[in-house]
Simulated assay, not measured.
Amino acid sequence: MPGSDRKTITILKALLEAEDGFVSGNRLANELGLSRVSIWSRMEKLRDQGFEFEAVTRKGYRIVKKPEALSSWLTRAYLEDSTIDYELVFLSSIDSTNDHATRLLANDFEAPFFVIANEQTLGRGRMGRQWYSPPSYNLYLSFASTPNVRPDRMQLFTLWMGACIAQHLRNRLNLDIGIKWPNDLYFDQKKLAGMLTEARVDADSIRELVFGLGLNVNQVQDDWPADLKQSAISLREPYGRKLDLNRMAAQLISAISTGYETFISDNIRNDFEDLWPQLDVLQGQFIEAESRDGPVEGIASGLDNHGSLIVKTNKGKLVTLNSGEVHLKRF
């Protein structure tokens, strides 16, 4: 993680691993080649970020409180053992993580990198819709890269990244999370997350790519705006308790990074074909959709090789949708 204070992160990681136990200040000083005063000054820096520590003579230090809101130090400490070496840009508030990532790319910020925010004031979904992004409850992040791949390679990209994220959450939380084509994660017929991929194409190559994720993590039902109470859900609701936002951020950064690297290797098709039937929440459902040629009704029947949705109409005709709005038909 370029640009981070690795010695402070190493101190924090040691304290986290000790859980309720103490970590010797002498041990930390010897392992890191620092003085006890330097160890203490780094811990004071962490105190300013919302951490609380207990110090006991001849025992050392232990954590007694961690920040519940997004913390760059805590997320980086959870990532310390990973192989991720991308820059992480943490922001307390931003208009949109996708927009900020695009601005950084335009100013030649070295990619790949992540933008992670505690709050978005103008969070966006597909078709310019607003994404509800209050502070401290949920995750709002964007991953930016300069992949230099053919445009036709992008047809499965968002669905592949969604599959990687959904599979990680299913394994981690034992929740039956699925994907609603083309870009949403769902649980119990409610929206859990949205994805937004934006790209700049030069000639015959994708030069800049930004993948955005808004994941509802700790929002509680009573706090949803009235227009979202029936359609949105957070992980906290089915999981039954509050989740560690920073641990979740670290895990998703790893999952997204691994998914992207697999995508770049051009080796996703077999894995995607195995994963998709497990995750497709529309399969076999009667749906309504808007296509370029007008409204479509029928049974959702999987994807074609390009990631387009196949719909079998009432007349038995197979229609493929490249994009558009899809809703379950209500009877």
Results as ranks from 00 to 15, higher is better:
Pro277Gln: 10
Ala232Leu: 08
Leu282Val: 04
Ile253Trp: 01
Lys229Gly: 11
Gln283Asn: 10
Ser257Phe: 03
Pro277Thr: 06
Glu288Leu: 15
Leu282Gly: 07
Ser234Lys: 07
Gln230Asn: 15
Gln230Glu: 15
Gln278Trp: 00
Asn267Gln: 12
Ala289Cys: 07
Leu252Lys: 06
Ala289Gly: 08
Ile287Ala: 05
Met248Trp: 01
Ile268His: 07
Leu235Met: 04
Asp266Phe: 09
Tyr239Lys: 14
Leu282Glu: 07
Asp274Ile: 09
Arg292Ile: 11
Asp227Phe: 14
Lys229Phe: 05
Phe286Trp: 06
Phe286Tyr: 08
Ile287Ser: 03
Asn267Arg: 13
Asn270Val: 08
Thr258Glu: 15
Asp223Met: 11
Lys229Arg: 15
Ser234Glu: 09
Lys242Arg: 15
Ser231Tyr: 00
Arg241His: 12
Glu273Tyr: 04
Leu279Arg: 02
Leu252Asp: 03
Asp271Arg: 11
Val220Cys: 05
Arg241Tyr: 10
Arg269Thr: 12
Asp223His: 09
Ser291Val: 04
Ile287Asp: 02
Phe286Thr: 13
Gly284Trp: 01
Thr258Tyr: 06
Pro277Cys: 12
Glu288Trp: 04
Pro238Asn: 08
Tyr239Val: 14
Glu273Gln: 10
Asn267Pro: 03
Ile256Tyr: 15
Arg241Asn: 10
Thr262Val: 08
Tyr260Thr: 06
Asp222Gln: 14
Arg247Glu: 13
Glu290Asp: 14
Ile264Leu: 15
Asp223Trp: 07
Leu235Trp: 06
Glu261Gln: 13
Ala255Pro: 06
Trp276Pro: 00
Gly259Cys: 02
Tyr260Trp: 12
Leu228Pro: 00
Tyr239Ile: 11
Pro238Glu: 12
Trp224Ser: 07
Pro277Trp: 13
Ser231Gly: 08
Phe263Pro: 00
Ser265Arg: 14
Gln221Trp: 12
Ile233Glu: 09
Asp227Ala: 05
Leu228Tyr: 07
Glu290Val: 11
Gly240Cys: 07
Arg292Asp: 10
Glu237Asn: 08
Glu261Arg: 04
Ser231Ala: 13
